[in-house]
Write a protein that binds this DNA or RNA. Structure first.
Ligand SMILES: Nc1ncnc2c1ncn2[C@@H]1O[C@H](COP(=O)(O)OP(=O)(O)OP(=O)(O)O)[C@@H](O)[C@H]1O
Length: 725
DNA sequence: AACTCGGTTTTTTTT
DNA sequence: AAACCGAGTT
């Protein structure tokens, strides 16, 4: 059979196995995704299953779309009927169909992180709580509870101990009430509500068990408890299940993903058969060797072998840069070199970083060097203020109970409804058990609101009513354009005429274009349809290999992708690994896995860069290079001295002059002048130690010193009286 | 009561 | 660097 010719022996076995639950455990680039793709194609070709009986869960929408396309190529159009998507999108779809059973309406809104945080914020204000945690930290906790399926009652009764915990409990409780009343769900709900649904309605579960006869999960190492529970629920003896993962690539622990899911699978699913793939088709021997030497430093991992027939290839280049600008320019120049020497397309080169904030300097340099690029993810298109404003309007038109969205647009553009009046309206709404939208319809009863403002509210309500009633008459695209026009938002940004406002102007036009496109693809598309799609769109979904641009993205976003050349930037302590707390091994190990993921994206060449100094939080920070660099097998790494080579650097003085001039005040005495990352110092009280980092300047300059006897201390240089040894 | 300006706090990674 | 908050202004 032709299909299987494109696979090696081990892969073929995994594809052909179709009996008990099975798990494919294999390292990077060994063809896990390929096996999953071919497996589905094989199942369809052998008619073991109809396409609509297959449930394939991927990590991103992009991965799902690509896999589906590939399967269509292999077995034809019928494959488009496969249920393929992320856990979130698939279960959102199921929830829309079954919403009434959970006392929701099908037009429920989906809250992203920002919406959730804003809800938390509103709750803190409404409850008049005095709490030290930021709304974002609280939301993180709530999300953690939900991910771990800790209910409000359970938390309040059994877990909350301190008074802070009790406050968090109160917020959590109110959060769940409010989000429900808003006919809205957050990302966690998209996984939890289906569990609730299946528990409450065994017949519904029965239905979906009958529906999904073959379940396949990619990137299984990054599933969380709720996702695990869901596949356990959907599984029974008649259902076939195959999961695929690499524990070394688990990088979403911070949001509830648990490698334990891979370890438990064998126990929880009867007669599990494990497959291993050991041949890597992606990378050179050198890259694999480097990646292996790094990941060996992690304690807990499933034993795996990985080898390749590919050539040795180039060593990893390690580029030292003076600061983030220098780094960016060296990268830009190096890209030009690599593209010509390797005859590559722009999209064959990826620039990866740990945090989005690093992209600024890179963008600037690429722009100046006239290299087309695209930021993937980052401040995602749909998360920008101006876009969320418009989407906020659409959400209210679709779901008037969505109070968060209503609050967002209430006074944008400014229409003279300020905070005080809004608070009064909300108080009124709660008192009479009305929604905010209903309250707007009865605004003249809210006597606390001034008459002039009541009129503004009435005007706004009429505006919304008008477009709500136009929903059935105009197409999605016509409706949005008309509304945006009447709102005068575009005009407003144009008149402001700043660089920022023009960018916003352009973004809104882009949004209108994309809505138009959406409408053209489906003439009957409703606002609900559109929102359902955009709420779950992710940054990486916007990336296409066929664009002639250099992709810039976080390492997280690069998961599952591959590029001939990969630049891994900002490899300094405190950036990558980011915030390594010395006592948190698990966190550090996850950072190491992330580094491993970054390395293994490359087919031919990896270039690692680090900068001696970098602007962070508005101040210059001096950091040692990443410990992960030191962990790489030295035979695989080639240090290139980048400083002074390039055009933009040549004009400057020597590297050292620059280093001291920018980092230290003139009047510093000799001793302080030569404090450097890595210097050994003595402190009167703490004894000997090594400088880990230097932050800030002048009197505020601080050093982090790892003392042999006393551990790490952060000291003000001015008072520390450190002596060099 | 809303708006505006300046000072303060707050920072991963994302479905 | 950007969002947020609060005091002073319209
Ligand atoms: N049998 C094979 N013959 C030729 N190429 C293969 C074979 N198997 C996999 N490949 C290629 O190897 C590369 C990696 O495959 P794939 O993305 O499926 O690996 P993966 O295990 O999912 O990787 P990762 O864990 O890094 O996401 C792809 O370019 C794929 O086309």
């Amino acid at each position: 059979m032709k299909l299987l010719e494109n696979l090696n022996e081990a892969q073929r076995e995994a594809v052909e196995y179709n009996k008990t639950p099975h798990m494919i455990v294999a390292g990077a680039g060994s063809g896990k995704t390929r096996v999953l793709t071919y497996k589905i194609a094989y199942v369809l070709k052998e008619k073991m299953c109809e396409p609509e009986n297959i449930l394939a869960l991927t990590f991103t929408n992009k991965a799902a779309n690509e896999m589906k396309e590939r399967i269509i190529e292999l077995v034809g159009k019928k494959a488009s009927k496969i249920w393929m998507g992320t856990f979130h999108s698939i279960f959102a779809r199921i929830l829309r169909a079954e919403s009434e059973k959970l006392d929701y309406r099908p037009n429920f809104s989906i809250y992203d992180r920002e919406d959730s945080i804003s809800l938390v914020n509103n709750i803190i204000t409404a409850l008049n709580l005095n709490i030290d945690l930021s709304p974002s930290a609280i939301h993180h906790k709530i999300s953690h509870f939900k991910n771990h399926m800790i209910s409000v009652d359970e938390y309040i009764e059994h877990i909350a101990k301190t008074s802070l915990d009790r406050k968090i409990g109160e917020i959590y409780k109110e959060y769940e009430i409010r989000i429900k009343e808003n006919n809205s769900m957050d990302f966690d709900d998209l996984l939890l509500k289906p569990i609730e649904l299946f528990n409450k309605y065994p017949r519904v579960l029965q239905h979906y068990r009958g529906q999904f006869k073959y379940i396949l999960v990619d990137e299984f190492q990054d599933t969380n408890h709720a996702q695990y529970e869901l596949i356990q629920m959907l599984y029974n003896r008649l259902v076939k299940i195959c999961v695929v993962g690499d524990d070394a690539q688990s990088i979403y622990g911070w949001r509830g993903a648990d490698i334990g899911n891979m370890l438990n699978f064998e126990k929880d699913f009867p007669k599990t058969k494990i497959f291993r793939l050991e041949q890597n088709y992606r990378s050179t021997k050198t890259i694999l060797k480097a990646a292996d030497s790094l990941i060996k430093n992690n304690k807990d991992q499933i034993q795996k072998t990985l080898w390749t027939d590919n050539p040795d290839g180039d060593k990893i280049s390690l580029m030292r840069c003076s600061d983030e600008k220098d780094e960016a320019f060296q990268i830009a120049r190096r890209i030009k070199k690599e593209i010509t020497s390797r005859k590559l397309k722009l999209s064959d080169v990826a620039i990866l970083y740990r945090i989005n904030a690093q992209s600024r300097a890179l963008e600037e340099a690429l722009r100046r060097e006239k290299l087309p690029y695209k930021i993937i993810g980052g401040v995602e298109f749909y998360r920008r203020k101006e876009i969320k404003d418009i989407v906020g309007y659409l959400r209210v038109l679709a779901n008037q109970d969505d109070e968060e969205s209503l609050l967002r647009i209430m006074n944008f553009p400014q229409r003279g409804i300020g905070n005080t009046s809004i608070t009064k309206m909300i108080e009124f709404a709660r008192r009479l058990n009305l929604t905010l939208f209903q309250t707007m319809g009865r605004i003249f009863e809210v006597i606390e609101v001034k008459e002039r403002i009541q009129k503004n509210v009435k005007g706004f309500k009429q505006f919304l009513d008008k477009y709500i009633s136009l929903k059935d008459e105009l197409s999605l695209s016509e409706l949005t354009s008309a509304m945006v026009d009447e709102l005068g938002i575009l005009r407003m940004y144009k008149e402001e005429n700043s660089a920022e406002s023009m960018q916003r102007y352009a973004n809104i036009q882009e949004l209108l274009r994309s809505i138009q496109e959406f409408t053209e693809n489906n003439k009957k598309a409703t606002i609900d349809d559109y929102l359902a799609e955009v709420s779950l769109i992710s940054g990486i979904d916007q990336f296409s290999e066929s664009d002639a641009v250099i992709p810039l993205m976080t390492v997280h976003s690069a998961k599952g992708l591959e590029f001939p050349v990969v630049f891994l930037t900002g490899c300094e302590e405190d950036i990558f690994p980011l915030n390594p707390k010395f006592d948190e091994d698990a966190r550090l190990e996850e950072e190491r896995r992330l580094f491993y993921v970054a390395l293994t994206r490359a087919k031919e060449k990896v270039i690692i860069t680090y900068a001696r100094s970098r602007y962070r939080f508005g101040e210059v920070a001096y950091q040692a290079r990443s410990r992960f660099i030191e962990e790489l097998d030295p035979e695989t790494v080639d240090e290139v001295e980048g400083i002074g080579k390039g055009r933009s650097r040549r004009k400057r003085k020597s590297y050292y002059d620059e280093f001291y001039q920018e980092g230290f005040d003139e009047d510093y005495n000799q001793e302080r002048r030569s404090l450097r990352v890595g210097s050994r110092v003595v402190h009167e009280l703490f004894g000997q130690g090594k400088i880990l980092a230097i932050n800030g300047q002048g009197d505020m300059q601080k050093v982090s010193v790892d003392f042999e006897e006393h551990g790490t201390k952060h000291l003000l240089v001015k008072f520390a009286n450190l002596r060099l040894i």
